[in-house]
Amino acid sequence: MKNLLAPVLTVLIGLLPAAAWAEPAPGAGQSGLVQLLFFGGFILIFYFLMWRPQSKRAKEHKELIGGLSKGDEVITNGGIAGRIVRVKDDFIVIEVSDNVEIKVQKVAVAAALPKGTLKEV
């Protein structure tokens, strides 16, 4: 089996330099422009599908955190739902049950719930 592969490999290795030095096809001068357009299209797709939606979500979350006040009902990233009792600079105190309060960072708030949601749960 080893004897059969040697001639095939020799022929393939002999063809590689010939393929590397082959002349480009006619009209290949525009390939730089095509590559530039392809790269520009890729950047536009990346912007509209990834970067723009992510920055929009970050802006909405920043507005949510800035608008937190006492009495708001929120849910955290960990799934804890409760009512805000106190608001400090970077932390909030959430009442999750009667006489049970926990301190949470403001950035851990995932969403604000409509008023009365906790009574239904």
Score class of each variant (00 low, 15 high):
residue 98 D to Y: 05
residue 20 A to R: 08
residue 76 T to P: 00
residue 72 D to Y: 03
residue 82 G to H: 01
residue 66 G to L: 03
residue 19 A to W: 07
residue 67 G to E: 10
residue 92 I to D: 03
residue 79 G to M: 14
residue 107 V to L: 10
residue 110 A to H: 09
residue 119 K to L: 09
residue 9 L to F: 05
residue 37 L to P: 10
residue 79 G to P: 03
residue 27 G to V: 13
residue 66 G to E: 03
residue 44 L to A: 11
residue 112 A to W: 04
residue 75 I to V: 11
residue 14 G to K: 03
residue 64 L to N: 05
residue 19 A to C: 11
residue 70 K to Q: 09
residue 65 I to Q: 03
residue 80 I to G: 01
residue 49 L to F: 00
residue 101 E to T: 10
residue 86 R to K: 14
residue 24 P to S: 04
residue 80 I to Y: 00
residue 109 V to C: 04
residue 53 P to W: 03
residue 113 L to W: 02
residue 121 V to T: 12
residue 114 P to G: 03
residue 12 L to S: 06
residue 90 D to V: 15
residue 100 V to C: 02
residue 2 K to F: 04
residue 99 N to Q: 12
residue 88 K to R: 09
residue 34 V to A: 03
residue 111 A to I: 13
residue 70 K to R: 09
residue 116 G to F: 04
residue 51 W to T: 15
residue 63 E to P: 01
residue 46 F to E: 15
residue 49 L to D: 05
residue 109 V to K: 06
residue 7 P to M: 12
residue 6 A to V: 14
residue 109 V to N: 01
residue 44 L to R: 11
residue 91 F to Y: 12
residue 89 D to S: 13
residue 16 L to T: 13
residue 80 I to L: 08
residue 9 L to M: 13
residue 65 I to A: 02
residue 112 A to K: 14
residue 74 V to P: 00
residue 16 L to I: 14
residue 2 K to E: 08
residue 99 N to T: 15
residue 47 Y to M: 15
residue 3 N to G: 08
residue 83 R to G: 04
residue 13 I to W: 00
residue 108 A to M: 10
residue 96 V to W: 00
residue 98 D to C: 05
residue 99 N to G: 06
residue 60 E to M: 06
residue 16 L to R: 03
residue 10 T to H: 01
residue 82 G to K: 08
residue 85 V to K: 05
residue 61 H to Q: 12
residue 110 A to Q: 13
residue 93 V to C: 02
residue 12 L to A: 08
residue 107 V to I: 15
residue 65 I to K: 03
residue 30 Q to V: 13
residue 109 V to M: 06
residue 71 G to Y: 02
residue 121 V to W: 07
residue 53 P to I: 14
residue 53 P to K: 11
residue 75 I to C: 01
residue 86 R to Y: 05
residue 92 I to C: 05
residue 72 D to Q: 07
residue 94 I to K: 05
residue 44 L to M: 13
residue 102 I to E: 07
residue 92 I to L: 09
residue 41 G to F: 01
residue 10 T to N: 05
residue 48 F to C: 14
residue 2 K to Y: 04
residue 83 R to P: 03
residue 40 G to L: 14
residue 15 L to D: 07
residue 115 K to S: 07
residue 41 G to T: 07
residue 95 E to T: 15
residue 26 P to Q: 09
residue 27 G to T: 14
residue 42 F to L: 14
residue 66 G to Q: 05
residue 6 A to F: 00
residue 101 E to F: 01
residue 29 G to H: 04
residue 53 P to Q: 12
residue 35 Q to A: 11
residue 87 V to N: 05
residue 99 N to M: 13
residue 65 I to G: 06
residue 64 L to H: 04
residue 19 A to E: 11
residue 92 I to K: 02
